[in-house]
Structure formats: C-alpha cells, structure tokens
Design a binder for these strands. Sequence first.
DNA 1: AACTACTTTATAATTATTCTAAAGTATGTG
DNA 2: CACATACTTTAGAATAATTATAAAGTAGTT
Lengths: 140, 140
Amino acid sequence: MHKMNSKNKTFIDKLRSSGLRPTNQRVEISKFLFNRKKTFHFTVEELKNSMNLKRSKKISTATFYNTVHALKSAGHLKEFSLENNTSYYDTNITSHHHFFDNGKVIDIKSDKITFQKLPEAPKGKKIKNVEVVIRLENNN
Amino acid sequence: MHKMNSKNKTFIDKLRSSGLRPTNQRVEISKFLFNRKKTFHFTVEELKNSMNLKRSKKISTATFYNTVHALKSAGHLKEFSLENNTSYYDTNITSHHHFFDNGKVIDIKSDKITFQKLPEAPKGKKIKNVEVVIRLENNN
DNA sequence: AACTACTTTATAATTATTCTAAAGTATGTG
DNA sequence: CACATACTTTAGAATAATTATAAAGTAGTT
Ligand SMILES: [Mn+2]
Ligand SMILES: [Mn+2]
Ligand SMILES: [Zn+2]
Ligand SMILES: [Zn+2]
C-alpha cells in the first residue's frame, strides 16, 4: 500500500478532483505528468511509451487514455493540436502562447505577448481566450 | 472533353503547378475549392460529402485525399488543426488569424491584429509566422 | 493502333482513439 | 473476517481518419 506524502498531495488531489480513485497506475501517471518543474507537452502514445519503458508490468493503453481524458475533463490538462491529427496535452492549463519548432513545443508566458489591436467578437459572442502560435524555422 | 475558359484558368493552373494533370475529377475539385469569393475551411470528408452529394458518379476518397494533398504540398492550401484529430484545410494561404467558434472557423485578416510586444526567437531560430486563434463563446 | 505514363478506384492497411466485456481490486456491512 | 457491491484494469475488438496497393481506365505520343 502507498503512504501519501505531502509531495504526492497535489497530483493525488488532481486525480480525486477528476473523479478518479488514486490507484497505483493513476498515481504514477499523475506524478509523471505533474511532478516536474517545467510544462510538459505530450501525446498519449508518447506518455505511454516513456512510462512503460522503465516498467516491468506495463500500464495498459486504455488506462493512459482514460486517465488523461479524465484529467483533461476536470481541467488539469489542456488539449491542443499540431498539424498531424494527434491530440497533444499541456500541463500548463493557463491561457498562454507557444513556439512551434518542427514538432517541438515551447511555452511562451502570457505576458510576453501583448496586443496593440484586436478585433471584436461577432455579435452574440464573446472572447474566451486569445492564443498565439509563433512558428519557427532555422536561421539562414 | 473540357474546353478551358478564362474563369477556369486559375484553378486549373493550381493543379498544373501541383504537378497534377487537369483531369475531370481534379478540375471539379479545384473549382469547388477555389471558385468562390470567401475563404473555405474544410476537412477532406466534408469536401467529399458535399461534392459527391450532387453527383451520380462519385469521385473516390483516394482522389480527394490525393488532390488535396498535392494542392497543399504546392502551397495552394494551408493545413491546420482543431482539437479533434482531423486535418482541416484553408484556401487562404496567407498568414492570417482565426476565430474558433464551436467548430466553426472564421478568418481574421492579418492587419486586424497587431502586437505591442512579441518575444524573440530562440537563438539559431527565426520567426516564420505568427498566427492568433481567438476562441469564442456565447454571450451571457 | 500500340506504347507508355499517369489516373482512378475499390479495397486493404495503418494509426490514433474509443469501446467492450471479463477478470481484478477495493470498500462497506454485518 | 465473509460477502456484496462498486469501481478498475486490461486485452482485444471496433471506429474514424488517413495512406498504401494494385488492378483497370485514360490520355498523349509515335
Ligand atoms: Mn484519430
Ligand atoms: Mn488520423
Ligand atoms: Zn504550453
Ligand atoms: Zn483561414
């Protein structure tokens, strides 16, 4: 059985608030996702492969998808897309911006970009958020 | 056999410059895509369904995918993604911005958004383009 | 007409994702 | 602690979007 320490608290709470019991598999996934300093951008396949690589008893694909989906529905992960019909997830759930550099994704803090001019929302609508993608290429 | 008129010229040229012979099927697809005043945003499935609806002899799925792919590779279409692992295409190939409103996509001309502050590219990289997505929701 | 290169199409394969149903684990109750 | 019940994990099937294959069709050339 697992003893909960204060370090684990945050990511176990994320599971609980997603309606998920903190089982072994889920705790390991949540820890892997949230127990890091920097934002993590990933696909479910990438997550599965990197976690299962070091494990003798693999966590099943369905558990990865289910857990990620529940965390996303509860607002602990944000979904986004690149141009390759795969879902990416972002542990930074605040509204922020990105550099896209050949499949690599880098966060840009919200306050690093400000606008001089922005269009109004069409009538009956309002703006939920404004997010910028800066696509990069190699110099020269 | 088809006689080419000046109206057809543009979209037939797009086929030619994509390395595609202007066959009947391709001409109809290219015409459907480019012979309109406003930008068209679509998925291949949507394109196929709306074009085949009015046809007795259907154009095959592979031809839709192949033609769209060639047009995109030649730069006559731009690919983008919403949060649902399907590729969308945009007949507006200029760098521009979008409203995303519940799966609906609306163009925002480039000059409608200007920046006060933008981050620099990481070293060794330069900025290829900057595109904004404004997500909308219903009022009240 | 015969030759060649390019096209279209039906169908199979692939990839990402979701579903299903059976077996496993935890929790509550007496 | 038994047992019931509820939730979980998992392997494998199913689905959706896309890509590949290979046979039959079409066009351009000699
Ligand atoms: Mn998919
Ligand atoms: Mn896909
Ligand atoms: Zn991010
Ligand atoms: Zn557009």
